[in-house]
Design a protein around this nucleic acid. Structure first.
Lengths: 404, 404
DNA sequence: ATTAATTCGTTCTATCACCGAACTAAATCA
DNA sequence: TGATTTAGTTCGGTGATAGAACGAATTAAT
């Protein structure tokens, strides 16, 4: 058989799958119209997809004029993926099916012993989640793991990962693949957040999008033309090292970035201590500001001014349409309001600034997006690496809350 | 005929064309090996391409064992493109053929009357350049015009274009298309520089690349995963508004960016004036520094420190492999050496910093790259918008100096 | 209730792009 | 001179798809 013919068939198959994934239960005639393929071709492909166990008959149309049509839909439990958000304090695992329904989200405190223990913990949580919904292990095809730092796809290592002991020098991807028995993709957690927000959150339909996570540290994720910006060493989005805030040429700024030192939690606490003379945690500072404490408000103002500068820097370089703030600190509405006020004072073009709607779950939503996208691509996709298998629209996706 | 079949054929045709473009004179058997298509298919496609006037026989191989092979090559004068670099002081026009040979580069001072006069000037230069090489007008298929500011593809207007009077509110693209009689693509000049350097300059084979042009102003071009970053309002790369250097919240910084004010020519001159107490032009300052003037050297040091910060900002956000400095000031070797010294003092990961090798011609090289790429795509390309028709490798391209 | 209109899905035939194998042609090697 | 090697063609065959015709099933209209 010809090679190009094989590709041609895959293309058509993919188009059909996409129509079914996106269009819910749909008749063959409708698929033909949508895809511009002829009716018999659709029939043939549908027959094959049904045979292979990816789709099934749903029922028949009725009420319209003309003959009733048989409708088809995805078999949601034909395959599953695992989405993992590995943080310094918590591990989050979710299992999602082909139709993008998410079951069984499990959360647990990260195993403090680090290294292999964390790997085993992730595996255990996966099996636990799967078991909770009676999902057979073999049906899970791949996992996407989000982690802080710069995961290297090639070596499977996570560079510059803070907060998790003992994984600096281990091949996390391989270890996980061994423990789980299927493919594992590593990705930076903030990158997953952008993807998550782009799929189901604040950034729907926005192809030029940035995400800034502010918490104990600061990190950024950037999407350009619908593609993730990873950079050469996967170090794109290391916003902590933006050369302002603290003095960038201070040697200390090479260890903890000049920007991170002043804008993340440590900087906020320090600013409050200097101004007031006593210590307070970040949530306390927010509370005081809400209660009318002017000095606390000043601290937040100053923080927001710095954040606005960060947004301006991103906008000056990449000019995204929207910047989403996330992370425990970035999520605070009081802060975003202030950033919106300060930004036009230091940057002349309009940039939308919003808080993340997915919050702490942004990363796992993003991991799910990548996982399903990979899976769809692997099963039905073209071979082009940048081909984006479009995921179902937000309305049809159920991301139900996990049992705690 | 089937639609997918048509696509399939285009794919194959394109593959053949690519092999011919890249591989110089090449036999059908070799093309078959390279493309993994069968010999007869190649023969068929080659026959058609020859019939359509895109390729021609070149000669025969000899010296090898086995039967001699007929070799084919591109007919370089089958089509031409015009590349235009429209600057505040100079207009540059080049005509290039399908094989990426550039003829007839014309340079002239930009018509000071602006607006339609500039449009007419560009057209005149095009015809002049074409006439100089006896190229019939009809064979020019399209033009790519690089200009400062943010060219909007949709409206054909150039927003925020400094230095050129009377084109703020005119549809430059349409006016040019009317004057020239073929398609015109507008692009930011610094964006063209990145593309140019990526094709024939310092950035060959580097898909994550940044270009900083420092002159009377400052601008940046960014390439991520081989794609240009334009941003929503085509305002990506407006580095002048990076929020450091001068005080970003100073209202003046909204007009002339905080960074631009201190790092571009005005800032350098000002810095010298403050330190020494007398005025000097930028070239003079460089001369003095070269002659051993310590204060002039200090001014350059300070400028380089600021530039290093700019590079750091780009690296923190997008993490390109290399940053190329260009523009009348950025090209100075003395400056780059200093930037290389300062960068590691404010940014922890390695970033290569180089001067542009294409210099003032970077934009026109980039325009040529885009033009030829578009043309190849239009003629033989797949319909995918992001498909990159690969241009011939640097060695085979002759970018001969223009007659002045 | 019968007929008309409409849509669904299949069957049948044709076309197109391509491959593989066999074959011819022309060169070098020994 | 024949063996070897490579180039290119001819011929038959196959897979993916289209288009037209047709039967099937339904609603709307009379």
């Amino acid at each position: 058989m010809s090679d190009t013919q094989r590709i041609s068939r895959k293309f058509s198959q993919r188009a059909v799958m996409e129509a079914i994934v996106q269009g819910g239960p749909i008749s063959r005639a409708s698929i033909a119209k949508q895809t511009d393929l002829s009716k018999q071709t659709i029939s043939e492909i549908v027959r094959q997809l049904e045979l292979e166990g990816w789709i099934r008959e749903t029922g028949r149309t009725s009420g319209h004029i003309g003959r009733t049509a048989v409708t088809y839909e995805l078999i949601p439990d034909a395959a599953y993926i695992a989405a993992v958000d590995l943080g310094g304090t918590k591990v989050r695992v979710a299992i999602a099916d082909l139709a993008c329904h998410v079951f069984a989200e499990e959360v647990a405190p990260t195993d403090r012993r680090g290294g292999q223990f964390v790997v085993d913990q992730i595996a255990a949580l996966c099996w636990q989640a799967a078991a909770a919904q009676n999902i057979p292990r073999e049906k899970i095809r791949m996992a996407v793991v989000g982690a802080p730092g710069a995961p290297e796809q090639s070596t499977g290592r996570i560079l510059m990962a803070p907060n998790i002991p003992g994984i600096q020098d281990m091949d996390v991807a391989s270890a996980l693949e061994k423990a789980l028995g299927f493919d594992v993709t590593l990705e930076n957690d903030v990158n997953l957040c952008v993807i998550g927000e782009n799929w189901l959150g604040q950034g729907q339909g926005i192809d030029n999008l940035a995400y800034i996570a502010v918490g104990t540290g600061i990190g950024g994720g950037l999407m350009v033309n619908g593609q993730l910006v990873r950079g050469v060493g996967n170090a794109a989005g290391e916003l902590g090292f933006l050369p302002f805030g603290a003095e960038p040429f201070d040697p200390e700024s090479l260890r903890t970035g000049a920007y991170e030192r002043v804008v993340a939690s440590f900087g906020i606490i320090e600013r409050y201590r200097r101004l007031v003379g006593e210590a307070a945690t970040v949530p306390e500072i927010f509370e005081k500001a809400a209660a009318g404490d002017e000095k606390a408000a000043t601290v937040l103002d100053e923080t927001a001014r710095l954040l606005a500068q960060g947004v301006a820097a991103i906008a000056a370089i990449a000019n995204p349409q929207k910047v989403i703030l996330g992370g425990s600190i970035g999520l605070r509405e009081e802060l975003v309001v202030r950033v919106r006020k300060f930004l036009p004072q230091c940057f002349p073009y309009p940039v939308e600034v919003e808080t993340s709607v997915l919050g702490a779950r942004a990363a796992i939503v993003g991991a799910t997006a990548i996982g399903l996208s990979h899976l769809h691509n692997a099963l039905f996709g073209a071979d082009a690496p940048d081909s984006r298998m479009s995921l179902p629209p937000a309305e049809t996706v159920s991301f139900k809350e996990a049992v705690r």
